[in-house]
Nucleic acid binder design. Structure first.
Length: 493
RNA sequence: CGGGGUGUAGCACAGUUGGUUAGCGCGCUACGUUCGGGACGUAGAGGUCGGGCGUUCGAGUCGCCUCACCCCGACCA
């Protein structure tokens, strides 16, 4: 599929179709009857759960605690921070009534007009407002700080156009909300979390990312600074995979959250928020998939190894099962999640294809021929290479191979990104090359006008100003004005 | 909200200038043979043709309206 991908991107209708089919065929999710929403199926959810557990553990190691806040936000809360409302107003679902009644004309039920809410409630597009409304009651002294809270929740944004996992009306995510006594501490936390995300995405999802700062245009509504991790998909488009926002004192002031500092003076608290969503699932699919379906990095695969028996009758199956049992046990001892699929209702060929579609990293197949020879067949999902190996020591071999797959998936994605990252200084060259996708390292004069012009001309946006990028004197490729460093420009999802 | 497209079985589709009882493939059920890369045979079940109104002796097919979904733009994790 990787080969086809390039051609398909030229016609995004086909590419969307490919993507949707893959999601459905790999049994991850399907479109729901509700506009723009999706049903995440057990297999897809198992992957999300694994991501959730891993992230949750990482958060807690930095002192973050989980909590839960209401789904519904009073309209007045959302209006408190001016930029914030403006950012989300266009995509909110609103609760206006609290009761239905039988239709007087006898056709089912209708909204009871008498049950109109005095104040409308907004289904959260994000929880800053309700959380800061609550934090006001929790924070009084510098001794209450820092307050490090995370919430696992669903949010709703009434998007015009949706695509499974990448942009759905309802999506699952975590949103961290921290309150600090000083600006420095809050900034430090903001950066810490973007680093944590990068660590997770690279080491568990095997997706290389570029850490950077968003331009003012692309910043979160109400933030003074937004950090981002940007990944490149196989078609050369960028995907914003996680963000961490330094909110300054904006929300504290809007919600009147003050504390007595060490000098016994009232001060507004310093805030940040950070989040990743089920969009990461989309990144996973679009980064690693190939002709035969999904490819899962072992660190996230719900099933790391599947064992398929090949048999002609029950007696043979019994023999094989006997040989498989110790392998399963050994793998489990090594911490490998393994499934022995002895289901009788599917033929081996079907199972092979099916587990490939689902991205299971390693498949072991054992038949009568192997039993005679004391061998077993191992196939790697990433390379599709098959090897016949001695049963002796297979568990250790598999465990090592899993690590190798994890690593080579990352390396493969990194190579793809490097191969499609270009330093460009001429706007004409940029306009030509952007058509084929990729990341472009370019000089930019730092103005919103230039940024807007690039977007209008090419549909590409400044993804970020990379962190740790070397200073380099240059001139803006559009205006010729001086620039101190290169930024990353790309088309994105 | 603008432009384009599609609605026919669980899925994916065909259905001629309007003509009798609406079809193919996949999937599903039963039985048998199979089982080392998505098996095959035989028999079966499954449809308010998205909805409404109209034209007509007759509408899946023509006209109008409406709804839903998909794609392209604007918006976005």
């Amino acid at each position: 599929m990787a080969k086809e991908l390039k051609d398909l991107t030229k016609r995004s209708e086909d590419y969307s179709k490919w993507y949707n089919e893959l999601v459905v065929k790999a049994d991850l999710a399907e479109q729901s009857a509700v506009r723009g929403c999706m049903v995440i199926k057990p297999y897809g959810y198992a992957i999300w759960e694994k991501m959730q557990q891993t992230l949750d553990k990482m958060f807690k190691e930095t002192g973050v605690q989980n909590a839960y806040f209401p789904l519904l936000i009073p309209k007045s809360y959302l209006c408190r921070e001016a930029e914030h409302v403006e950012g989300f107003a266009k995509e909110c679902a609103i609760v206006t009534h609290y009761r239905l009644k039988n239709d007087p004309d006898g056709k089912g039920v209708v909204v009871d007009p008498a049950a109109r809410l005095e104040e409308e409630l907004i289904i959260r597009p994000t929880s800053e407002t309700i959380i800061w409304g609550t934090f006001k009651n929790w924070i009084h002294s510098y001794r209450d700080l820092p307050l490090l809270i995370n919430q696992w929740a669903n949010v709703m944004r009434w998007e015009m156009r949706t695509r499974m996992f990448l942009r759905t009306s309802e999506f699952l995510w975590q949103e961290g909300h921290c309150a600090h006594a000083t600006a420095e501490e809050s900034e430090k936390r903001t950066v810490q979390m973007i680093n944590l995300y990068a660590d997770f995405v690279e080491n568990y999802m095997a997706i290389p990312v570029i850490k950077g700062v968003k331009t003012a245009n692309e910043r979160f509504a109400g933030a003074i600074n937004t950090y981002t991790i940007e990944a490149m998909m196989q078609d050369g488009k960028a995907l914003q995979s996680g963000t961490s926002h330094n909110l300054g004192q904006n929300f504290a002031k809007a919600f009147d959250v003050t504390f007595m500092n060490k000098e016994n003076k009232p001060e507004s608290v310093w805030a940040n928020s950070w989040g990743v969503s089920t969009r990461l699932m989309g990144a996973l699919i679009m980064t690693h998939s190939d002709d035969n379906g999904l490819v899962l990095p072992p660190h996230l695969a719900p099933i790391q190894v599947v064992i398929v028996p090949i048999y002609k009758n029950n007696a043979q199956l019994e023999e094989i099962s006997k040989a498989v049992a110790p392998i399963v046990e050994k793998l489990k001892k090594l911490g490998v999640s393994v499934k022995y699929d002895d289901a009788d209702n599917k033929r081996p060929g079907f199972k092979f294809a099916d587990y490939e579609l689902k991205g299971v990293p390693i498949r072991l197949a054992l038949g009568a021929r192997d039993l005679e020879n004391g061998t077993i067949e191992m196939m790697r999902r990433d390379t599709l290479e098959k090897q016949t190996l001695p049963i002796e020591g297979i568990a250790e071999k598999v465990a090592a191979e899993l690590e190798d797959i994890q690593n080579s998936l990352y390396q493969r994605a990194l190579k793809l990104r490097n191969d499609r990252t270009y330093k460009v200084d001429s706007y004409d060259e940029f306009k030509e090359k952007i058509e084929d996708g990729g990341f472009f390292l370019c000089h930019w004069d730092g103005t919103a006008e230039t940024e807007e012009k690039i977007k209008e001309d090419t549909k590409a946006t400044i993804r970020c100003i990379p962190l740790g990028g070397e200073e380099e004197e240059g001139v803006c490729m559009v205006t010729g004005k001086p620039s101190k460093r290169r930024v990353i420009i790309a088309r994105s999802y």
